[in-house]
C-alpha cells in the first residue's frame, strides 16, 4: 500500500506523551526487522473454516459469502504453507450460527465441532479449534462448552462480538462467562454487524466500518459492565487489533472519571483491563492500526491472525515484517505469544 509516513511525529517524544495511560513499557520497537523466515512456525489465531454442516445450513438459507462456501481444508493448508504457518486455530466467521432456530443451532454447533475435532486429528499439528457454541442460547452454550473443552479438547471457544443488539458484557451472558472464567478458558471473539448497523450505506460493506466498531462496542461492554474485572482468568482475544478501540482509547479511559458508577466497575482501571486482553493482527497488519495498538498494549498481547479465506497469510507476514518489529517481537507475535496462551500448541 502506498501509504507513506506522514512525517512530523517523532517517535520518542510521542511515546513520552502517553500521559493518559501513564505507560512507558509499551514500545513499538523498530530497531531492525531482520526477519528470516524460519521454517513453518507461525500460529494463525484468526483462520476461518467451513465444516460441511455449516455450509449446508448457510446454503439452506441462501446466505454465506463465496470464500466461506468455497472453503476446503486443502485451500487452508496451501495458504499456510505459502507463508510459514504451522498451525491455524479454526473458527467459524460471522454470522456463525445466529441464523438458525435454537434446536437447530445446538445440533449444527455439535456437528461442526465434532467435524473440526476430526480435522484437527487427521491433519496432525496443522489445525487447532475455537469451538462454536449456540449463542445466544446460554443453556445450550454451557453444554457445548463442556463438550468442546472436556471431550473434544478444543483450544478455546469462539464467540461473536454481539448477538442481536446484545454485547458480551450483558448480564444475560454472565453464566457463560462465569463458566469460561472458572475454566480459565481462551475466548476468541469475532466481529459481526449488530442489528443496529446492518446495510446502513449501500456503497460501504459492513466489513469496512461496522465490524471494527462492533469489536469496540463489545470491549466497552465487557469493561464497563464490570465483566472484565469480574472474570480475570479469562483470556480474551479481540480480532483486527481491537476493532477501533485503540484509536478511541482516550474516550475509554476518561469515562470513569466523569461517572462514579462506572469507576466502581473498573476497580483496577480501564487501561489495566485493555492491556491484559489479546489482539490479533488480521486485516490490521499496517502501521495505522499497529502504531496505535502498540502504544496501548505490549507486544506480548499481540497474536498473528490472517482472516483466511478473506485474506492471505502471506499478506499479513508482509505487513508485519514491513512494520519494522524487531526479530524477537516478530517471533512473539508470530508464535510465542500464542504458545504461552495455548501451551498444547507447542508440539
Amino acid at each position: 500500500m502506498a501509504i507513506g509516513d506522514g512525517g512530523g511525529l517523532r517517535r520518542r517524544a510521542l511515546l513520552g506523551g502517553l500521559v493518559v495511560l501513564g505507560a512507558s513499557a509499551l514500545l513499538p520497537r523498530r530497531e531492525s526487522s531482520a526477519q528470516s523466515p524460519t521454517p513453518t512456525h507461525r500460529i494463525d489465531v484468526h483462520h476461518h473454516h467451513s465444516p460441511p454442516a455449516y455450509v449446508a445450513a448457510l446454503k439452506s438459507k441462501g446466505i454465506g459469502q463465496p470464500p466461506t462456501l468455497a472453503w476446503t481444508p486443502e485451500k487452508s493448508v496451501e495458504d499456510m504453507d505459502r507463508a510459514g504457518v504451522a498451525t491455524s486455530l479454526t473458527s467459524i466467521t460471522t454470522p456463525a450460527l445466529t441464523f438458525l432456530e435454537t434446536a437447530e443451532r445446538r445440533r449444527v454447533a455439535r456437528e461442526c465441532n465434532e467435524w473440526t475435532r476430526k480435522l484437527v486429528a487427521d491433519r496432525k499439528g496443522r489445525f487447532g479449534m475455537f469451538a462454536v457454541v449456540p449463542m445466544p442460547d446460554v443453556e445450550g452454550s454451557l453444554q457445548e462448552i463442556a463438550h468442546a473443552l472436556d471431550t473434544l479438547k478444543a483450544d478455546g471457544i469462539g464467540l461473536l462480538t454481539s448477538y442481536g443488539d446484545t454485547w458480551l458484557g450483558d448480564s444475560a451472558f454472565t453464566p457463560v462467562f462465569e463458566e469460561l472464567n472458572r475454566r480459565k478458558a481462551v475466548v476468541y471473539t469475532h466481529p459481526t454487524a449488530a442489528d443496529c448497523c446492518k446495510k446502513l450505506i449501500a456503497e460501504v460493506p459492513e466489513s469496512a466500518i461496522e465490524y471494527g466498531t462492533d469489536t469496540t462496542r463489545t470491549i466497552a461492554s465487557f469493561v464497563f459492565t464490570g465483566s472484565a474485572a469480574r472474570f480475570p482468568d479469562l483470556k480474551i482475544i479481540f480480532s483486527h487489533a481491537g476493532g477501533t478501540m485503540p484509536f478511541l482509547t482516550e474516550r475509554f479511559t476518561r469515562l470513569p472519571l466523569a461517572n462514579k458508577q462506572l469507576e466502581a466497575k473498573v476497580p483496577n482501571g480501564v487501561a489495566h483491563e485493555l492491556r491484559r486482553f489479546y489482539y490479533d493482527t488480521a486485516q490490521a497488519s499496517h502501521p495505522m492500526a499497529l502504531a496505535s495498538l502498540t502504544r496501548l498494549v505490549s507486544t506480548s498481547q499481540i497474536l498473528f491472525g490472517t482472516d483466511f479465506p478473506f485474506r492471505t497469510a502471506a499478506d499479513h507476514v508482509k505487513g508485519l515484517t514491513e512494520y519494522g518489529f524487531s526479530a524477537s517481537d516478530l517471533r512473539a507475535i508470530d508464535r510465542d505469544n500464542a504458545v504461552r496462551l495455548m501451551p498444547q500448541l507447542k508440539a
Partner: peptide, 15 residues
C-alpha cells in the same frame, strides 16, 4: 490530541 489517534492519522495525511 493523543498519540493513539494522531500517530495513526499522521501516517495518512500530512501536517
Amino acid at each position: 490530541a493523543h498519540p493513539m489517534a494522531l500517530g495513526s492519522l499522521l501516517k495518512i495525511v500530512s501536517v
